[in-house]
């Protein structure tokens, strides 16, 4: 564990808590894409399939349970909670998740690290699911970014949520650089490339988020 990875995990946790805070306290999910939340639930479900078989540390298991619990409860709130669901604007959330999931699944079947980790007892299925979750996580934010461009006024909590979500993966990139130089044989091209793509997708959001913070004006993405 290094400071970049810990900071990354804490930023990721904070992003989820900000979203749960928004939904739970003001009972509103205005501006939040349900499609992105459902994709994140799939990302965690396929990433942590081996939560009970491959134990790493109390921290690791606890964080996995928090991410699984929070992502599924956010989806539940937005789908079934009688007050929250009313603030979900499905007409603005039109991105079709399958056009993201299918290519990620095909890519995971074609390109995964199974061939380099022979000694790992993990089954091929788990490896493909894990790789699928990496690719899916990289693009899962797209429905949310599309929705942000459609909803003119982005409220602060939503802006902070997306910012923290992007920042966590940027911190993970620093973690991978650190581990590459401090641990031998630490090379994970698949993880690195999908993490880089994921962070680059936030580039324009970061730009407008920084501009709104610098000029102290409301965050607005160009249509």
């Amino acid at each position: 564990m290094n400071i970049f990875r810990l900071a990354g995990d804490m930023t990721h946790l904070l992003s989820v808590l900000v979203l749960l805070l928004k939904i739970h306290t003001i009972k509103s999910c205005a501006g939040i894409s349900l499609k992105t939340q459902e994709l994140y639930a799939v990302v965690f479900a396929t990433r942590y399939l081996d939560i009970f078989t491959s134990y790493i540390s109390p921290y690791n298991t606890m964080m996995k349970l928090i991410f699984l619990g929070s992502s599924f409860s956010i989806v539940w709130y937005m789908r079934y909670h009688k007050i929250v669901r009313r603030s979900y604007d499905k007409d603005q959330d039109t991105f079709r998740p399958y056009i993201l999931m299918l290519p990620c699944l095909i890519l995971a079947l074609l390109i995964n690290e199974k061939f380099t980790f022979k000694e790992i007892s993990t089954s091929f299925f788990l490896f493909v699911m894990w790789t699928f979750s990496l690719y899916l996580e990289a693009v899962a934010i797209l429905p949310q970014l599309v929705m942000l461009q459609r909803t003119r006024n982005i409220d602060n909590l939503t802006g902070q949520y997306v910012f923290l979500l992007g920042a966590y993966r940027a911190l993970y990139i620093l973690n991978w650089i650190y581990r590459y130089f401090t641990e031998e044989h630490f090379v994970h091209w698949i993880t690195w490339i999908s993490g880089l793509v994921q962070t680059l997708l936030y580039a324009d959001f970061f730009y407008y988020y920084f501009q709104s913070w610098k000029n102290n004006v409301k965050l607005q993405l160009p249509a």
Binding site: S54, I56, N60, M63, E113, I120, W130, N175
Partner: peptide, 10 residues
């Protein structure tokens, strides 16, 4: 220890 496993990250 867990650190050396490839999937030791969240």
């Amino acid at each position: 220890n867990g650190e050396s496993k490839p999937h030791d990250e969240l």
